[in-house]
Every structure is written in structure tokens, then in C-alpha cells.
């Protein structure tokens, strides 16, 4: 893996001894302390958005992960004015080539394929690179008969990639249909935020769907809905708890318990024998 990138990312995420103010309860903590607590506010439990490598560090066994296809990057398919410059800025800022990291690693010694979207890069929006990496991850998990975890953190479609962004929804969903037909096990973890075309494709297609507390999850954005219906939205609308109440996620799991929950689910799904399975759900 690219250690420079890893280092930059680490510095970015942990900061120094700077203070961080919790956006929910306004309590102040040293960034270092927050990082030690997996970026969960010690006072109110607010789950900060975290970068892809921080996520992998929290979830996977130490030193177990290897990143795949890490240099995959956008062709700017619409030749969109200013997009290349914007991509370059975000690359510099985050050390990532796009809004997604794909890796293989282990959780309590169980091998998994993991994809993590990173909201620091263009709000985790799905363009061709995100769609392509997710599809490759699904196909790789299918070939290797490994379980697949996808951590979503995305505002939705990457506008600057237009129709090519939209079509990633069909591509990723088709790949997951095949994977599911081959008995592949997919856990979708929804983190803050999971919106638009990401919600309307792979993120909603997990065998198990988990969410972090308080995560914003939905299809249409709040502003668009308010403009359309001409009224303000109810308290807690489109939060993980709302989704659970309405039957769209299996469980809300606080970040400190996530690794244990994933290990438990992976163990419960360890394959017993090969058998023909006809996928006819949904």
C-alpha cells in the first residue's frame, strides 16, 4: 500500500492537540482524545464522520489489510468545466484518488472484502470510480467466495459525471444480484450521510443492513422535499432511528460495538456446504 498516502491521511484525521467542538452538544475535546474514542463524542455519543482509512483501522485486524485498485481515477467523462481542477484539489486535501477505498483484510481472522466511501472527497458522491470499485469488489468477493462489507457515506450521484454517474446504480445492483445468486454474503453499513443514488442502489441491497446512530439516510434531500411539499420536515426525519422504525434496517450499531457485531454476523454466515441456491427474493 501507499504509506505516504496513509501517513497523510492519518495526520489529517488525528490532527494534533487541536480542539474539536462537538456539533451536537458543543463539548470540546482534544482531537487526539476523539480519535482514541473512534471519533464518537464522549459526552453525547455523536458519531463524527470519519475517513476511509480511519474506518478500516477501526474495523479490520491490525495490519491485516491490503488496498486494491487504489489508483483508479476519473476520466472526466463529460469534460465538465472545472471538474479536473476540483478533483486535483480534493486529491491534495484527502490523499485519495476518489471517494472510495477498496481492500481485503480480516476481522477477528475472518477474511473479508471491504469497500469504504469517504465523505471528505466530494461528499462521497458516486461517479464512475466509486461504481467501478464497488463492482470490482463485488466480483472479487464472488470469485474468492468472501463476504463483502460496504460502508456507505455519500451525498448521492456525482453531478459532474452526469449520466455515467447514474448508470453506476444499475451496474452495482446487477453485480450484487449475481453475487446474491451465488450465495454471497453482503453486509451494508450506512453511515452519515447515505443519500440519493447510493441509497437507491447497493446500500439498500445488503443481506444485513446496519446503520450508525444518527446517520442521515434517504433518497431525496431534505431541501428538495421541503420545496416540493411546501412544509418543514418532522423531527428525526431520515435519521437511522427513523429508518429502523420504518423497517428499512436490521439494526443500529454504535461504532464501538461495530467490529464485534460484524464478527458475530460473519461467523453466523460461515459457509457449511456448497448447494444450489435459487435467488428469488425481492
Amino acid at each position: 500500500m501507499d504509506f505516504d498516502r496513509e501517513l497523510r491521511n492519518h495526520q489529517m484525521a488525528d490532527g494534533d492537540l487541536e480542539l474539536s467542538i462537538c456539533p451536537k452538544c458543543n463539548a470540546q475535546f482534544a482531537k487526539k482524545e476523539l480519535a482514541d474514542r473512534q471519533h464518537v463524542c464522549p459526552n453525547c455519543g455523536y458519531h463524527y464522520r470519519i475517513g476511509a482509512y480511519d474506518r478500516l483501522r477501526i474495523i479490520l485486524d491490525a495490519d491485516s489489510f491490503e488496498e486494491l485498485d487504489e489508483t483508479l481515477h476519473s476520466t472526466d467523462p463529460l469534460d465538465f468545466p472545472g471538474y479536473r481542477e476540483k478533483l486535483n484539489q480534493m486529491r491534495k486535501k484527502t490523499g485519495l484518488d476518489d471517494a472510495v477505498v477498496m481492500a481485503v483484510g480480516t476481522i477477528k481472522n475472518i477474511p473479508v472484502v471491504v469497500v469504504v466511501l469517504d465523505s471528505r472527497f466530494s461528499m462521497g458522491s458516486m461517479g464512475v470510480v466509486v461504481g467501478e470499485k464497488i463492482t470490482r469488489a463485488v466480483e472479487y468477493a464472488d470469485e474468492q467466495k468472501l463476504p463483502l462489507l460496504i460502508f456507505s457515506a455519500s451525498g448521492g450521484a456525482r453531478m459532474q459525471e452526469g449520466i455515467f454517474s447514474l448508470m453506476q446504480m444499475a451496474k452495482t445492483s446487477s453485480a450484487l444480484a449475481r453475487f446474491s445468486g451465488h450465495r454471497g454474503f453482503f453486509i451494508s453499513i450506512l453511515t452519515d450521510p447515505t443519500m440519493g443514488g447510493v441509497t437507491a442502489s447497493f446500500a439498500s441491497l445488503g443481506d444485513i443492513i446496519l446503520a450508525e446512530p444518527g446517520a442521515l439516510i434517504g433518497f431525496a434531500g431534505a431541501r428538495v422535499i421541503e420545496q416540493t411539499i411546501g412544509q418543514s420536515l418532522p423531527e428525526g426525519f431520515q435519521r437511522a432511528e427513523y429508518l429502523e422504525e420504518h423497517g428499512f434496517i436490521d439494526a443500529i450499531v454504535p461504532r464501538p460495538q461495530l467490529r464485534d457485531t460484524l464478527a458475530q454476523l460473519l461467523l453466523l454466515h460461515q459457509p457449511k456446504q456448497e448447494a444450489v441456491y435459487d435467488s428469488n427474493e425481492g
Binding site: 446487477s174 449475481r178 441509497t199 437507491a200 441491497l205 422535499i225 411539499i229 428499512f248
Partner: peptide
């Protein structure tokens, strides 16, 4: 486009579209 409304979200607009694409592909 799909309707951006409160009930549409409460009843899983995203899930409904995702499942359609998954099913149609097979």
C-alpha cells in the same frame, strides 16, 4: 424522477428503486 416526499421516504423510495434494478438484471 421519483417523488421527493415524506411518505415516499418513510416507505423506502431508495430501497424500492434498488430492488427493481437488482431484479431486472436477472
Amino acid at each position: 424522477g421519483a417523488y421527493p416526499g415524506i411518505e415516499a421516504e418513510a416507505r423506502g423510495q431508495g430501497e424500492a428503486i434498488a430492488k427493481n434494478m437488482m431484479k431486472m438484471s436477472q
